[in-house]
Design a protein around this nucleic acid. Structure first.
Length: 576
RNA sequence: CGGGGCGUGGCGCAGCCUGGUAGCGCGCCUGCCUUGGGAGCAGGAGGCCGGAGGUUCGAAUCCUCUCGCCCCGACCA
């Protein structure tokens, strides 16, 4: 492709609308343009990167035995009513009526449609397992779209759905998809981790998120520094806390703690470590109040709490509600004598003679003991892991790092097959529900994540496998016939060798060409300029490390072919 | 949905407080000149100042309403 003919409107300055780096660079690099909030047009360069990711996804899905389909984007409400999600899904589902006043929606995901397709067309265990995927534009009417392609309303997604005869089969499929995802993100040239994730309200047994590691990620990932344990913050657990219950329980006593409300204030006043104080927080679980007991140095993980209680949603009660329920202001709450259900974090179970609020302003209780002074209705892991915690598997040090979720796989079980009554006949002639799995990849987000992960002050630094072009060839002096002839010859030769070359043939000064080449992050830069005229040498430079070398045209061509071949070799798949 | 900010040539911004009919940098077009890290000179094109209503002799500027966009939040006693 010739730069002079490519719609590649680069910008010198950061557009005011962009905050995060990938958004700024994609706008500056002429890859995307915004149409309206969370909705973007993909320009040729942006689309080229997206197509690269798509192709890798396609190859690996096919290799794993999945089949590509393309499902409708506009969907009838009936199906969603059948699954129960027409009510449940909420405002993210964009609903509208067609000309016949039929309720419809834009597909944010395709469990309903795929299950409908399969129930109508697959009737025997002999046809199973089957794994279907598509790569398509999704629409989710996000509360707050932001950060360009990172959280758009309209975005490109690969979504796949598997159908197995039983749990064992579904486990095999799940593992295949896990492996395929590992290959996909490895091939994309990204640093990532597969982390254990919460399965949420869908239930099911297992779920992994694939996180691209980047300081600007929205999600927090917990990674063991010694073994391969990795989980997201909603799911992560820590090695069990020390148990101090060998100590003899002492008699509980009420003491005055005037004006000391926070954990730090009380602990400082009483000269005790934070872990010896148990804080009490009132939550509303689906509207019902519960008191949550937690060590002073720990924090609640709401999703864990939600799961322990089997609640749809939990929220912290406001101060007015707290005072009304506990008879004391926030800061002085405790489990002793509270009339609402108690939920205790398991770390508290290992404590003896701890401090709590007294449910009375300016008072706390010391030497409180669980089982003697109060009895929790629920005990479990409801706290957030922190940097002081140790790995639950190996005891190694845990690190909290940030990531961008680019893939998510989980087992759906029979949720949708039951709701939509999707069945097949097994080898006994019995009707059974499909056991399903669901596997997503944010394709457009993956491109943004790659940029978040890899850039410098001059611009993007694309990994070779997903770069829009592999080589940018700069003709530094288009007015010079000899230099131009060589640039054109190289362009033809490299292109003929199957290498994707962007020829900068614009009548611009060299500085502008360097700046644009750096900005759009093409991995290999080849330059023809006056040095070619003087001593027949070209200059070769790699974007990632800035390494520059001079070479004869023949040598440069050979090096480039080798670099591209090496990347291809690492990413080429065998097709079944 | 709550809070904050912003809408002025393609992009980045000034002008608004203290009304008098729009300006700067970049980009774009023409010419000269220049050609290894976003050159220089000269000439030029391009704006219903987000929209509607109001106040006024007069509104980008003041008032009201409205639309759009961006950021933060919607979790810790």
């Amino acid at each position: 492709m010739r730069f002079s003919q490519l719609l590649l409107p680069t910008l010198k300055e950061d557009p005011a609308e962009a905050e995060v780096i990938s958004h700024k660079l994609m706008l500056r690099g002429g890859m995307i343009r915004k149409l309206t909030a969370g909705v973007y047009s993909y320009l040729p360069l942006g689309l080229a990167a997206i197509r690269k990711v798509e192709q890798i996804v396609r190859e690996e899905m096919n290799r794993a035995g999945a089949q590509e389909v393309l499902l409708p984007m506009v969907q009838p409400a009936d199906l969603w009513e059948e699954s129960g999600r027409w009510e449940k899904y909420g405002p993210e589902l964009l609903r509208f009526k067609d000309r016949h006043q039929r309720e419809s929606c834009l597909g944010p995901t395709h469990e309903e449609v795929i299950t409908d397709l399969v129930r109508k067309n697959i009737h025997s265990y002999r046809q199973l397992p089957v794994n279907l995927y598509q790569i398509q534009t999704k629409f989710r009417d996000e509360i707050r779209p932001r950060f360009g392609l990172m959280r758009g309303r309209e975005f490109i997604m690969k979504d796949g759905y598997s159908f197995d005869v039983d749990e064992a089969g579904a486990d095999v499929t799940y593992q295949k998809m896990h492996d395929a995802y590992q290959r996909i993100f490895t091939r994309c040239g990204l640093a990532f981790r597969a982390v254990e994730a919460d399965t949420g309200t869908i239930g099911g047994s297992f779920s992994h998120e694939f996180m691209v590691l980047a300081a600007t990620g929205e999600d927090v990932v917990v990674i063991c520094q010694h073994c391969d344990y990795a989980a997201n913050l909603e799911k992560a657990t820590a090695q069990a806390e020390k148990d101090s219950r060998s100590e003899a329980p002492k008699e509980a006593e009420k003491i005055a703690t005037p004006g000391r409300k926070t954990v730090s204030e009380v602990c400082e006043f009483l000269q005790i470590p934070h872990e010896n104080l148990v804080k009490t927080m009132i939550y509303l679980a689906d509207g019902q109040p519960v008191a949550v007991l937690l060590r002073g140095d720990h924090e609640v993980q709401p999703v864990k709490l939600q799961n322990l209680l089997g609640a749809q949603e939990v929220e912290l009660a406001d101060d007015g509600k707290v005072t009304q329920l506990a008879g004391a202001p926030a800061g002085y709450l405790g489990p002793v004598g509270l009339k609402i259900p108690l939920v205790m974090d398991q770390a508290v179970a290992g404590l003896v003679n701890f401090v709590t609020g007294a449910n009375e302003a300016d008072c706390h209780l010391v030497n409180v003991n669980s089982g003697r002074d109060f009895t929790p209705q629920h005990t479990g892991d409801i706290r957030m892991v922190n940097e002081d915690d140790r790995c639950p598997r190996c005891g190694g040090k845990l690190a909290l790092t940030r990531g961008i979720e680019v893939g998510h796989i989980f087992k759906l079980g029979k949720n949708y097959s039951k709701a939509l009554n999707a069945t097949f006949l097994d080898d006994q002639g019995q009707s059974r529900h499909f056991v399903m799995g669901c596997f997503g990849i944010g394709v457009s987000r993956t491109v943004a994540a790659a940029i978040e992960q890899s850039h410098d002050r001059d611009g993007m630094i694309f990994p070779l496998p997903i770069a829009p072009f592999q080589v940018i060839l700069l003709n530094l002096t288009p007015k010079d016939a000899e230099i131009t002839a060589e640039a054109e010859r190289l362009y033809r030769a490299l292109t003929a060798a199957g290498i994707e070359v962007l020829l900068d043939d614009r009548d611009e000064r060299p500085g502008s060409k360097f700046k644009d080449a750096d900005l759009i992050g093409i991995p290999i830069r080849l330059m023809v300029g006056k040095r070619f005229k003087n001593d027949g040498l070209l200059e070769l430079r790699t974007r990632s490390d800035g390494q520059t070398s001079e070479a004869t045209p023949a040598a440069a061509e050979a090096v480039i072919r080798e670099m591209v071949a090496a990347a291809d070799k690492a990413t080429t798949s065998d097709h079944d």
